[in-house]
Simulated assay, not measured.
Amino acid sequence: MVRRQEPAPLSTGAVISGPIRTCVGCRARASDSELLRAVVRDEAVVPDPRRRLSGRGAWLHPDPACLRAAERRRAFPRALRVQGPLDLTALTAHLETVEAGQ
């Protein structure tokens, strides 16, 4: 059976078609095209902008404020279902290069 995904209304009243994800930082729902996927590799959180890396992913707005909120809430270990602290250096560096390019 094929399920067709209906456009999902957001709290702002906007309608988005396609997969909806929740940012681990600000907890806002958004289209997956607006968010950056991150995965765990060797106890480090790495960005997956092409969405090709295997494993469980966490979604985040490409905004340093959302990264800081996720760090403060300790959201990455919970979202990625891993124990202990994670290294966010690679993800922080990626977001800084994204910010510099804009």
Rank of each mutant, 00 (worst) to 15 (best):
L80N: 09
G18E: 06
V2P: 12
D32L: 12
L60D: 11
A75Y: 09
R73F: 00
H61E: 01
V24C: 04
T97F: 00
P47G: 02
L53K: 12
G101S: 10
H94R: 09
P7C: 03
T89S: 08
A93R: 14
C23V: 02
V2E: 09
P77S: 08
V15T: 03
A79F: 07
E43H: 10
V46K: 12
A44E: 15
L67D: 09
T12S: 15
H61P: 01
V98Q: 08
A70W: 04
A100L: 05
M1N: 06
E43F: 08
A44D: 11
T89P: 14
S11V: 08
T22R: 04
G25Q: 07
V82L: 04
L88D: 13
I16F: 11
T89D: 13
A69K: 09
I16Q: 10
V45L: 09
D48S: 14
L86W: 14
A65M: 10
R21W: 03
R37Y: 02
D87W: 01
Q83G: 12
H94A: 15
H61Q: 00
R41S: 10
G84R: 03
R4M: 11
A44Q: 13
F76E: 03
Q5E: 07
A44G: 11
R4I: 14
L86M: 13
C23D: 13
P64R: 11
G84T: 03
G13Y: 01
V39W: 07
P9D: 08
G18H: 10
S31C: 07
V45N: 09
P62K: 09
L80G: 08
S17E: 09
R50P: 11
A90T: 14
P49V: 14
V82F: 04
D63K: 01
R41E: 06
P62W: 10
D42E: 05
T97E: 08
V24W: 05
R68I: 02
L67N: 04
W59T: 03
R27N: 05
R29G: 01
A75I: 14
G25R: 13
R27W: 01
Q83T: 11
A30P: 00
P49A: 14
V45C: 15
T22V: 13
E43Q: 07
R73V: 00
A69V: 00
R56P: 06
S17T: 14
R56D: 10
T97I: 01
G25E: 14
L60F: 11
Q83H: 11
G25S: 12
T89R: 11
L91G: 09
C66H: 04
P64L: 07
R21M: 04
V24F: 11
R68G: 14
I20F: 03
W59A: 04
W59P: 08
R21P: 04
R21E: 02
H94W: 11
R3V: 12
R37A: 05
F76Q: 05
A93P: 02
L95K: 05
T92V: 10
A90E: 15
V40H: 09
E6G: 00
V82R: 05
G13K: 00
P19K: 04
